[in-house]
């Protein structure tokens, strides 16, 4: 399957040569002429470069277009700082909630047999296929002034919409499936034998979970939290609908990017955007590392 760009294979032993011939014969059946290969690779890479790499580069180019001082000045702006703080707070809340939910749901779904399991997983997946704007809208319909609970909330002086609780709720909705979906297949694959062994050795349910299950899924948990966090910090559509865009109060980082951009403060907008882009890049790197860990874990268990 290896593409030999340089077709020079230097082999000394005759049987090595025979093996190379066999490999070449095998390859011929499963690959294309060299010109075709080069065209396909070039096409794929050009497409990815134009549509994915360039936008990423533009973010940083624009952020630093007025120099490094302007960049840091933009980040030090009180409005930027408050947006960063709010983003961290909201992410902490929704990742925390979804982490607990994910662990609980994965235990129920992966460790037990019951009817309707596939349907339940589909329900957990729902937020993936709901437009972010609709994810925000549903909370406006519940908690808005004309919403189902709007009157009650006003009477009791509780602010959900256009405040942190609303933003956290919408973000939790959008990021709901991440941890559970990372854990369910992993825990299903690991089966229940180790847990059964622990129980038969006298461990309680919690002891079994913390001493046996959790250590086995720790990389999966981290993986889910990582993706959940990236989405929570970057969510735009849902948060935009419920936030009310109160400057310095209910603007998260992505919302501030929009506001600054619409005010033609490009350096500031792209400075905030560059932080989010870095978050995305770090997430991707960590994800790649974690995927290797997860693969290794699986290999070890297959021995």
């Amino acid at each position: 399957m290896t593409m030999q760009i340089a077709d020079s294979v230097s082999l000394s032993a005759p049987d090595a040569k025979a093996r190379a011939h066999a490999a070449a014969a095998r390859n011929n059946l499963r690959t294309e002429p060299r010109a075709v290969r080069i065209v396909i690779i070039a096409l794929a890479m050009t497409f990815l470069s134009v549509f994915v790499v360039l936008p990423l580069v533009v973010v940083f180019a624009q952020a630093f277009s007025k120099g490094i001082l302007a960049y840091f000045a933009a980040l030090a702006d009180p409005e930027a700082l408050s947006a960063i703080k709010l983003t961290l707070l909201v992410a902490a809340i929704s990742v925390g909630l979804n982490l607990v939910f994910g662990l609980v749901a994965a235990w129920a779904i992966a460790k037990f047999e019951f009817s309707g399991k596939t349907f339940l997983i589909t329900l957990i997946d729902l937020p993936f296929s709901v437009s972010p704007v609709i994810s925000g809208l549903v909370f406006v319909l519940l908690f808005g002034a004309q919403g189902y609970f709007g009157g009650w909330l006003r009477d009791h002086d509780i602010q959900i919409l256009f405040a942190v609780p609303g933003i956290a709720l919408a973000t939790t909705f959008v990021t709901f499936p991440f941890v559970a979906r990372a854990l369910i297949p992993l825990m299903q694959e690991q089966g229940t034998q180790e847990e059964e062994a622990a129980i038969s050795l006298g461990a309680s349910g919690l002891q079994t979970f913390f001493r046996v299950t959790l250590p086995n899924i720790k990389w999966g948990v981290l993986y889910g939290v990582l993706l959940c966090n990236a989405r929570a910090m970057g969510e735009f559509g849902a948060v935009s609908v419920v936030s009310g865009h109160i400057r310095g109060e209910t603007n998260t980082m992505p919302l501030l990017v929009e506001i600054l951009y619409n005010e033609y403060q490009f350096v500031a907008a792209f400075a905030i955007a560059s932080l989010l882009a870095m978050l995305a890049l770090i997430t991707l790197i960590a994800k790649t590392v974690l995927e290797n860990h997860l693969d290794e874990g699986q290999d070890a268990s297959e021995h």
């Binding site: 794929a44 890479m45 990815l48 994915v52 790499v53 360039l54 936008p55 990423l56 533009v58 973010v59 624009q62 972010p132 990236a230 910090m233 970057g234 969510e235 735009f236 559509g237 980082m253 992505p254 919302l255 990017v257 929009e258 951009y261 490009f266 907008a269 792209f270 955007a273 989010l276 882009a277 978050l279 995305a280 890049l281 997430t283 991707l284 790197i285 994800k287 790649t288």
Partner: peptide
């Protein structure tokens, strides 16, 4: 590297993608 890059649209916040594509 390109294999990893495929995931960028998943990971990049949509607002960032929006302003970046517009600038581009």
């Amino acid at each position: 590297l390109f294999d990893a890059i495929v995931d960028v649209p998943f990971a990049l916040p949509t607002a960032v993608a929006g302003v970046a594509l517009t600038a581009l």
